[in-house]
Design a protein around this nucleic acid. Structure first.
Lengths: 293, 293
DNA sequence: CGCACTCATAAGTCCAGGTTATGCCCTCAT
DNA sequence: ATGAGGGCATAACCTGGACTTATGAGTGCG
């Protein structure tokens, strides 16, 4: 398994064109960097950088490895942004409460953007369901909240910042992946589906859209488990599009077009009625709304 | 920065419900696992798992962290699949040669799938441009090739396995993100764009589609650099949709609908004329075609 | 009550990755 | 030409963190 530090080093070498400069950027010495890259090359059995007395340049294999590495490091940065927000729990200038889906898929990106824009803003994050978010806001324990769902908790003002569409997905081998015409509500309702458990946000939306008729093939308690089942060909699943971007573009899953079924739900920023977001809360809010145009 | 090993451990704990079992799966002892999780919790300042005499369950924060961690680990697995293919250069049963874009974005996923389906197949990978791929195949140094582009090198048979569409993207704040009607060819050709350098595959497709008229605002030598410029609002960019899936779903970039411009190019599997792929090459080929339906 | 499972603590070992120190190679400017 | 400077490699040493084994303690069950 790769070592994150080594990957960062490799990216730095690619960017700066020299082992020494890369080493300095990461706060280590040049020999340390040299040895790290060397040991990585030994492990891969391929030369990654062309060393010359005028600097170091990536080889072809190095460029490929670097591109793969970049994905890992970007995911790690998102993790870090989220982790920092979890860590700085108390004395933060901006306290955010968010529902799970938003905290999982969207917040890390926003936090990275906010950090690059206002590097000195400390953000703290708590995650929970809609009512928990509302409680924290009303108790003054959070400055800004994010919820998904069909209704806005009372006592809160809100702004729609995005929409989350549920989509029907199957493994590429499934018969639905080949069908010519879009899927209708009746057929969807008549087919057993891989679903989140009753009471979950996505299940709620689906039941509403179909008039309470969704038939579960399997019920699972996490989005990830649903995804895994669908990828393994257990059947068609209904999931937030946020959760399956990766799988769709890698064609591990295929989206099935729908017709006459509306599976959108609003993602909303919320705050106590009257208390218009100001300062860092306003910054974050405008970041999130930028995407909607 | 997080430690990959600790993240894997956390995922294993989540899946298996016990520190001890997770430890065993990773080949370490229970105290080692215990201490690792503990140190991670100390670093984050949040309890991640609820320990009980009957096992360990994730806390809410733990579930969130685990979801973030899963992304990193998945990227690392893709890296690992690619790295292994680079490592086993010589005596492998299946030797693949692929163009950069395919090697970068698609192959790792295929290799993971192939590994789970045929765990004992050793794959080796070399990356290069179309002519290099053709040379290796014709010289008998590779069993199966993948190329993108408008033409098939002579001496090779091919099968289209997917299509790669170029798309026009801008930062969400750009005026085009708000326009109502699709963009036409003339307007696209008249606007300076952030592009890859002349001679690159994507540039080639764009020039062809526009009749050689693309006007560069900036020319950059890597897909990543183009992406970064576009995200920072330098202007509209043209990129493979494979490269921007992440950015689109996080709304760091917005896709601009086009009209009357065809920016698709075929991704093809290729092999020496007559030499129909057999054995592991056939397995890999059928994996890649599964997505097309 | 003792067995089987969980997790925590303690004490000891070991190596990966770091450091400093040094030398070689190349280029460029004086 | 020659010395200065940047870039990389090698060598020898140091250290801390992560692993190990050994043990104890809490819970539930036959």
């Amino acid at each position: 398994m790769p070592d994150l530090g080594a990957l960062e080093l490799l990216l730095a070498v690619a960017r700066l064109g020299s082992l020494g400069r890369a080493a300095k950027e990461l706060g280590i010495t040049q020999p340390a960097a040299s040895s790290r890259v060397r040991s990585m090359e030994r492990q891969l059995g391929v030369a990654l950088v062309d060393r010359s007395p005028r600097g170091s340049r990536l080889t072809d294999a190095g460029a490929l490895v670097t591109d793969w590495a970049r994905r890992i490091v970007e995911a790690a940065e998102a993790f870090d942004a989220g982790a920092q927000a979890l860590r700085d729990r108390r004395d933060s200038r901006l306290r955010v409460a968010a529902s799970m889906t938003i905290a999982e898929y969207l917040l890390p990106g926003w936090l990275i953007a906010l950090r690059s824009q206002r590097p000195d803003t400390a953000v703290s994050l708590t995650a929970g369901n809609s009512t928990a978010v509302a409680e924290r806001l009303l108790a003054g324990d959070a400055d800004l909240g994010f919820v998904e769902g069909l209704t806005v908790p009372t006592g809160l003002d809100s702004a729609v910042i995005a929409h989350d569409s549920l989509i029907v997905v199957t493994a590429p081998g499934h018969a639905w992946a080949r069908r010519g015409k879009p899927l209708g509500a009746e057929e969807l309702a008549a087919t057993p589906l891989i679903l989140r458990e009753e009471g979950s946000g996505t299940r709620q939306v689906l039941d509403t859209a179909l008039g309470g008729l969704a038939r579960p093939l399997i019920e699972l308690s996490s989005t990830t488990a649903v995804k895994a089942s669908a990828v393994n060909g257990a059947g068609p699943a209904v999931l937030s599009e946020l959760a399956v971007g990766e799988e769709l573009s890698a064609r591990r899953l295929v989206g099935i077009p729908l017709e006459g079924v509306e599976l959108r739900r609003a993602l909303r920023a919320v705050w106590p009625t009257g208390h218009r977001p100001t300062g860092p809360a306003r910054d974050l809010l405008s970041l999130t709304r930028a995407g909607v145009g």
